[in-house]
Design a protein around this nucleic acid. Structure first.
Length: 497
DNA sequence: TTCCGACAGTGGGGTCGCAAT
DNA sequence: ATTGCGACCCCACTATCGGAA
């Protein structure tokens, strides 16, 4: 019903009505499921485990609490034999529910609920069901980070219960996100001048919580990585502040201070088995750009300029992100070019006045990155899902190889396509198809040239040229260009770091 | 009435750790 | 030893709704 209702207010109404009927003990589970999440977060079940689903039952027997218990048990199945055990448990669970419930559970477990109601809509639904302002729910969520818990509290105790949620050292806060802009001038126009510009480092976002001698480190998705980043812990422990919540970036730097490719930083942070040797070969450096709490005082609602002043006063300069405050666009442009010249991703332009909008992609922060483009050739396309069902969506694109006269695939992209373009390209690809068109991938004669934008070229173990484009997106088709006028692999190779 | 902010959806490449083969 | 799978690090972009202007 929620999925069938396209109007957002309609969805909110349906969800609120549903929440009003859920027993209090199951409210948390209901809110989690309806917004596409599991209380267990991950349970080690993916698409493979969800194949070969048994026939559902005619009548419902399972309660939400029982399903939740079973999922907890499935998560706990680890070690030898766990694949088969998980598969059996999942089959048992799915075989014990009705067809409707099974469909819902399958989508939930796949992580593709697709009913147009994730956290943003659920916040409104919780507010409506509990009879509280949505702003109160949002505020509690920013400091608690887990809507089902916040929602259950709101349903049980109203505004008073929501007011009980405060920033707690040791529990991560949803990090503030940034919008993007094409250039520094556009970014300055969005946030207003004067504004702060900071280097955008191509590393891993870190939120560091220090309380006395205890330090915890979390990622953008609030996963804890404390044990993987001892350098960050040591840095936090040297700070004079007794208690602090810091926002920043961890990145692997080379000896000359230039950044390693993102792949290197990501691999380092992901390494858990031998952190000491990983650290010896690939040390991490932490840079901080925000301070959310300092010695018992919450700073979230302070203007950006004040938060940074507090940060500056609490950290050695070596831990601070390089930053410039200006109202002159040309100075901002120069700072941006300098960041790129140092090998970094670009800059983030920040409002001096705005609060720390936890969990929001507010207009207070705007990122600017340089953009590369290439004219590439479409080699194949994949059939889309969901709202792209029936449309050839995901393009395989390649560069010309002057040696062989053929084309070398550099990656896939589905971004930047409008509905009209999807319709057009589906028809065009079917005309150009080589071989079957009902297969997952439809191979086409390499005749269409497409202009693709991307952030950079990275080493690839997957593609024959050993290179792949990062964040490729379609800008437009180039009907004025023939495939033999497309860019070559040599051009791409020259862009490798 | 038009504009624009926020949200949801549609997927991308790379890497690690673990279990299965 | 290698492969398959799940999880998660980075992410861009369009369509849509509904409140703001």
């Amino acid at each position: 019903m929620v999925a069938r209702t396209s109007a957002r207010l309609g969805k909110i109404g349906h969800l609120a009505e549903l929440l009003g009927r859920v027993p209090p003990a199951e409210a948390e589970i209901a809110i989690a499921y309806l917004s596409g999440e599991l209380p267990q977060r991950q349970i080690g079940v993916g698409w493979r485990t969800l194949q070969d689903v048994p026939e559902p039952r005619q009548v419902a027997t399972a309660t939400l609490a029982e399903v939740d218990e079973r999922l907890t048990a499935i998560k706990a199945q680890v070690g030898p034999g766990s694949h088969a055990a998980k598969k059996a448990s999942v089959a048992e669970l799915l075989g014990g529910v009705t067809r409707q419930e099974q469909t819902f559970l399958l989508r939930l477990l796949h992580g593709e609920l697709r009913q147009g109601a994730l956290e943003g809509v659920m916040i409104e639904a919780v507010a409506k069901a509990a009879g509280v302002p949505a702003a109160e729910v949002r505020r509690a969520l920013t400091v608690r980070g887990w809507l089902p818990a916040v929602g259950a509290a709101a349903l049980a105790g109203g505004v008073e219960a929501l007011r009980g949620f405060t920033l707690e050292v040791g529990r991560p806060v949803a990090p503030m996100l940034a919008q993007s802009a094409a250039d520094v001038a556009a970014a300055l126009a969005k946030v207003g001048v004067p504004a702060a510009l900071e280097w955008k480092l191509d590393g891993v976002r870190i939120q560091v919580h220090k309380s006395g001698g205890t330090v915890a480190v979390f990622t953008r998705t609030l996963d804890e990585i404390t044990s993987q980043v001892p350098e960050v812990i040591e840095a936090a422990l040297t700070l004079p502040a007794r208690e602090a919540v810091l926002d920043g970036e961890a990145i692997a730097l080379r000896l000359d201070g230039r950044p390693e490719p993102f792949q290197v930083t990501a691999a380092r942070v992901a390494s858990r088995t031998d952190v000491a040797s990983a650290r010896a070969t690939t040390p991490l450096t932490a840079f901080f750009f925000d301070l959310l709490r300092l010695d018992g005082r919450d700073l979230l609602d302070l203007p950006g300029a004040e938060r940074f002043a507090a940060l500056e006063a609490s950290l050695p300069a070596s831990l601070l992100i390089p930053r410039l405050v200006t109202d002159v666009p040309a100075e901002g442009e120069a700072f941006f070019r300098d960041a790129v010249r140092h090998g970094h991703e670009g800059v983030v332009v920040k409002s001096l006045a705005g609060p720390y909008a936890a969990g929001r992609r507010g207009a207070g922060w705007v990122k600017v990155k340089p953009r590369h483009t290439l004219d590439l050739v479409v080699l194949a396309a994949e059939w889309g899902h969901g709202r792209r069902q029936g449309k050839l969506s995901n393009l395989h694109v390649g560069a010309r190889d002057p040696e062989t006269g053929g084309f070398v695939m550099l990656g896939k992209t589905f971004k930047g396509l409008t509905d009209a373009l999807l319709t057009w390209q589906t028809a065009r690809f079917l005309e150009l198809a080589i071989g079957p068109t009902d297969s997952w991938v439809v191979t086409v004669r390499p005749e269409l040239v497409v202009e693709v934008a991307f952030d950079g070229v990275q080493r690839s173990p997957r593609y024959p040229g050993g290179m792949a484009l990062r964040f490729a997106r379609v800008l437009r088709y180039r009907p004025d260009k023939r495939p033999d006028e497309a860019d070559t692999v040599d051009t791409v190779r020259a862009l490798m770091p």
